[in-house]
Design a protein around this nucleic acid. Structure first.
Ligand code: FES
Ligand code: FES
Lengths: 134, 134
DNA sequence: ATTAATAATACTATATTGGTATCATTAATA
DNA sequence: TATTAATGATACCAATATAGTATTATTAAT
């Protein structure tokens, strides 16, 4: 099934780490520090954090003494947010049929049902915040 | 996000077709007939139906006048059943961390939450039957 | 024996995922 | 202002998964 991809997973780990440490010490973290603590692949995580920065989850500081910091409170960062960054919208309704736009899209019974379920799922994922994972 | 893979999707189409037609005519269908009606790739669908047969969703009849038929009532065939055949268990909790078995697996907060959500999702998918898509 | 169906399995092409490497840019500070 | 230590942007690469095809064997009706 593989619902959560590796970059989402690593992002969560990094964010949880930052949230945990931000309480007791300064709030700017270098990739190296996180990599060392969480034992993640360095270059890969770097790209992940860059993406989070571009999407407004992290703020980045270039140059010496730079790094990444959380922009919002861990209470405000939800799983949906993170998943959206790396895996796109939480939306279960993608119709195939030879790669073309589906003609049934307005009437399709399956689509209708999946849409509802997808919305529910999204709501639940929104209820999981980084803060709730500390 | 891509929740439903193409083989699951094609399987659903084929099963819905069979359920729909089984009402008015004989209940054995050849791959060729389904392919023609639903415009799916022949060899690919053949493999899909074979898999459904092996997993006990369809019965297959070899030889002339053979084909596939539904084993159970369309009311008994759920989305979860079909997804399981092609995409494995509906289970959102797969932990990475360098491909190894995760040591935190018993304590991990994320895992716990995803497990609950996965169960809910599974329940909802179980409520969607082939019959409900007619 | 012929014919029309599925079974099994191997193969191929493309896309996605997971990860690495390189070079540019920025900012602190000695 | 040169050095250094950080991120930014991008291109690249390898492994895996997805989507689909081809081939040959088996089966059963006629
Ligand atoms: S068949 Fe296209 S949306 Fe369902
Ligand atoms: S960190 Fe391994 S199960 Fe969550």
């Amino acid at each position: 099934m593989n619902f959560i991809s590796r970059d989402t997973d690593y992002a969560i780990r990094a964010l949880v780490y930052m949230a945990k440490m931000a309480k007791k010490k300064k709030d700017i973290f270098t990739v190296d520090e996180i990599v060392k603590e969480e034992r993640l692949p360095e270059r890969f995580l770097r790209r992940i954090l860059q993406k989070l920065a571009k999407k407004g989850v992290l703020r980045s500081y270039k140059g010496k003494e730079g790094g990444f910091s959380l922009i919002n409170s861990p209470k405000k960062i939800t799983l949906t947010d993170i998943i959206k960054v790396f895996q796109g919208e939480v939306d279960l309704t993608n119709c195939f049929l030879k790669g073309k736009i589906c003609p049934n899209i307005r009437t399709c019974a399956l689509r209708k049902k999946l849409k509802g379920i997808g919305r529910g799922l999204d709501r639940e994922l929104r209820s999981i915040t980084i803060a709730s994972l500390l």
